[in-house]
Write a protein that binds this DNA or RNA. Structure first.
Lengths: 337, 337
DNA sequence: AAAATTTGCGCAACCGTTTGTCCAGCTGTT
DNA sequence: AACAGCTGGACAAACGGTTGCGCAAATTTT
């Protein structure tokens, strides 16, 4: 047999109408028991499998979720996608993948292609410097729901799941203060990122709680590249006040900062303590694991975002019942060595 | 406009046949310049986008590649998929994802679903304990080409890309021998895995080259779980000959082994040196990075496998011209601390 | 100027499935 | 016996696009 058996084939062999066969296979009550059995038997024998592309076309539904995210090789995203895929699969959805590589143009192209592929919905984590959202607005016209996660846009009326860095940051800074640190540097991300602002706010609140003054010059905004981090660290080290602790934007930044500091002869976790945000797995294996780390639950975020999207698709959730889920970040203190 | 514009819509407005519109949009030479321009102008105006699901159905082609792999959150695989996605995208293919979680049943189900989704081809890295390949054999009947990568099956007549652990292992063991180690333990993987056998062969060859005797009791096969690793390490530590170096199956195993050894009061990289295979990123940040690490080039493997699959699909490569690409692994020596 | 080609476009089938509607025959009611 | 109500299945349209073929008009060839 060169080409797979179709419903027509079955109909012809049994001298039935294709509609009858179709209904028989779906256990439609209007089809008599005898014919139903016949059809199903022959279907099994021929190893009939419905042609999904035909069904997709006919039903205008593909049971496919599009995922757009910056970089798969970042541990955070691969954990998130793991959660997405697991959740989607439970509802028999498949997952179509696209990496923006933090390039807005690529992001736009991927969204366009996914739209044409008629994905039923989209899960998106923005490219670092995406500031225009026309390619997402457009999807409304096509009734393709979008749920953003982690890197969410500054738009009204969207669904999203994100972790609030503020709570974790408050906890992190509080921990440091409690341990006696008074001059705490922060290597923060680009100012326009919401996550950066949350870190700043968290820092401020923690200080405020202890009636301490927030010093903005200790909060350095970097571009998160290795070079940027090194410059930020340099600034912190040459600050007129002597810093004894650093809150780094994430583990990658933290490790780069640690490296830079170590090169300058600084004793890690002695002269300067580091607190970070967990992006790396197995931080327990690291040479200088941060004192503590703010966990962002990427798998959970992916899972939750997918659940929302599926509910949107099944109609369990109205399209304009905008879901905005905040997953509180939480400080996890590293076990004492 | 509730539903997107179709080719029929354009035809009606312009009083043309749908066939003419279709051809005009494809710049078919038999369509006059004037009508062609009209059609294209209106298409732009209406923001016409072809309905891909209709095209997929009609053309029996989806421009979609299925990827089946064990675990996205393993760094090796997320790097590989990154290479796959990048390469596929260059040829305007999309990528459909499925994780087997090292469960053969799930692997089978995913392959089944992907077949029904009519992916044009499949890229597969096997689940740890998959030993029956019926679900892949079946794909031949449907003319869905498969390219395996990294974890490849023991089948005849398949396409695959894999790294040869032998060369890297020879280099690794040779390095240890050269440094004076004589009793070298190996924590190997399940015996049926090709990659395990390659490591064994590599070990043997390196010994042979120095006219040394290979001691099979130093080569422990484990199941790669943390517990299995600890048991293996225990065996090695209680070996009658005192080992001074260990070659671990991969970085995860290596780290577990290191941990176990450290608990037993062993001085890492002093009493016992470790050499491993690179699965983890940023090994330079690890507390006890292996002395050296065998690099397997996951991104490259993904890329190469995808190229083969695409060539198969485009007909550049005959389906029975079985491609079996071996990417030599290479020992990378860690920079001295 | 007649014949041969080329140009430009329409007609209709087709891909595989679902689903609304119609119809024939049987059963049962009065 | 006539009529209504079921039952079980057939018919055909529709989803949106592609493509082989046919045919008239325009153009070129001899």
């Amino acid at each position: 047999m060169p080409n797979p058996p179709t419903i027509k084939e079955i109909a012809k062999r049994l001298n039935l109408a294709t509609s009858t066969v179709s209904r028989a296979l779906h256990n439609h009550p209007r089809i008599g028991l005898k014919t139903r059995m016949q059809v199903q038997a022959l279907a099994r024998e021929l190893q009939y499998e419905p042609n999904q592309t035909a069904i997709f076309f006919q039903q205008k539904k593909t049971f496919t979720l599009g995922i757009v995210l910056p970089e798969l090789s970042e541990a955070f995203f691969s954990a998130a996608i793991s959660g997405i895929e697991d959740t989607a699969n439970k509802s028999n959805y498949m997952v179509l993948l696209g990496q923006s590589h933090d390039d807005t143009a690529r992001e736009q192209k991927i969204v366009e292609i996914m739209k044409n592929h008629r994905v039923d919905g989209l899960l998106v984590s923005l490219a670092k410097n995406t500031v225009q959202y026309a390619h997402f607005e457009m999807l409304r016209k096509y009734n393709i729901p979008v749920v953003f996660f982690d890197r969410i846009p500054d738009m009204k009326d969207i669904h999203y799941v994100a972790s609030n860095m503020e709570s974790g940051t408050v906890q992190a800074v509080s921990l440091l203060l409690q341990q006696g640190h008074r001059v705490i540097g922060m290597i923060n991300g680009p100012e326009k990122l919401i996550a950066s602002r949350q870190r700043t706010t968290g820092y401020q609140k923690a200080m405020q709680q202890q009636r301490l003054k927030y010093d903005a010059t200790l909060n350095i905004h970097s571009d998160l590249t290795k070079e940027g981090t090194r410059q930020a660290m340099q600034q912190l080290l040459s600050h007129k006040r002597k810093i004894t602790a650093v809150v780094a934007f994430n583990d990658y930044v933290s490790q780069d900062a640690v490296q830079y500091a170590a090169e300058r002869g600084i004793q890690i976790n002695k002269d300067i303590c580091f607190v970070s945000y967990a992006n790396l797995p197995l931080s327990s294996y690291m040479a200088y694991p941060p004192l503590a780390s703010v966990e962002q639950y990427p798998y959970l975020q992916g899972q939750k975002a997918t659940e929302i999207l599926l509910d949107l698709l099944s109609g369990k959730l109205a399209p304009d019942a905008y879901q905005q889920v905040i997953i509180d970040s939480r400080l996890v203190i590293a076990p004492k060595k």
